[in-house]
């Protein structure tokens, strides 16, 4: 027995050491990006050369980056608005009223999660193109470019991808919802709508908030859909960043990335504060 003790300790050290390394591995690129954004040199070396905010200045001066940042925020906010409303209503329908179609509807709504994002993007790209061609053939010129040359096409893609996340969160709050609470409200004299407003909605609210914030984060970071569906001449922040870092290692990108991480962190912190991080469901 005594001989076995140090061996177990050693095993434990190796185990915990390995886990620490994995966490370092997971977080390293994010930390490095932040460090690089405050580094005064063109290239990050170890140890860093010095502290500087010049890359932030360069970022805030860059019209294309600032433009894409605001465009991304705009898309994410509008997408969150629609996804949350649609996701909540459809979750209500599927959980409460769908009867024997429940599993089919669930599958349909989760489809964008199961299908590769890039394929969905391609499918939408083709569809928008064919839509324009059909409209032109029908002489309905006013509809040409409805999806391709505006935010609408991009937004639809973002809603398709984010809606399943909202749906999952809210439908699981609804499944966990104790129906006796609604019955109690009804027995006390509340009608259906009052019951929903006064009892159901307040109780599933954390699920809705978590879903909405997750939706915002995902939309803000979405790449493949945006790459193929962005209107002509407009780019979201991830696209702009992608174009930039493909050809250029200039740490302005690090400043952009840091701001993007910060926005995500704020959304996560807000989730944690409002409803607890574990309300996020995948």
């Amino acid at each position: 027995m005594t001989a076995a003790v140090p061996r177990i300790r050693l095993g434990r050290v190796v185990y915990l050491g390995f886990i620490t390394l994995v966490y370092v591995f997971l977080l390293m690129p994010l930390v490095i990006v932040v460090l690089a954004s405050f580094n005064s040199g063109e290239f990050l070396t170890f140890p860093p050369e010095g502290f500087s905010l010049r890359w932030y200045v360069s970022f805030f001066d860059s019209e294309s980056f600032m433009g894409s940042l605001f465009y991304s925020l705009k898309v994410a906010i509008v997408c969150t608005f629609f996804s949350t409303i649609l996701g909540t209503t459809v979750a209500l329908y599927v959980v409460r009223f769908s009867g024997r179609w429940r599993e089919h509807l669930r599958l349909l709504i989760l489809l964008p999660l199961l299908l590769p994002e890039i394929l969905t993007a391609i499918a939408l790209l083709f569809f928008y193109y064919n839509f324009d061609a059909t409209m032109r053939a029908l002489g309905l010129d006013m509809f040409v470019g409805l999806f391709r040359n505006s935010m609408v096409g991009l937004l639809i893609g973002h809603i398709l991808i984010t809606l399943p996340f909202v749906f999952l969160g809210i439908s699981s709050s609804l499944y966990n919802f104790d129906m006796a609470l609604e019955e109690a409200a009804r027995s006390l004299g509340a009608g259906r709508f009052t019951t929903f407003r006064r009892v159901t909605l307040p109780i599933i609210k954390p699920g809705i908030i978590a879903g909405a914030l997750l939706c915002f984060i995902i939309s803000f970071d979405l790449f493949s859909i945006s790459l193929l569906l962005k209107g002509i001449g407009v780019a979201t922040l991830p696209i702009q960043l992608f174009d930039y870092v493909r050809w250029d290692y200039d740490p302005t990108a690090a400043a952009v990335a840091t701001v993007s991480i910060l926005i995500t962190l704020m959304a996560i912190a807000l989730t944690e504060k409002l409803v607890g991080l574990r309300s996020l469901r995948f």
């Binding site: 006796a180 609470l181 109690a184 027995s187 109780i203």
Partner: peptide, 15 residues
Amino acid sequence: EKRNIGMVFQNYALF
């Protein structure tokens, strides 16, 4: 809601 009943549920169903 129109029956004017008082009901107590197994798990109480307190809001």
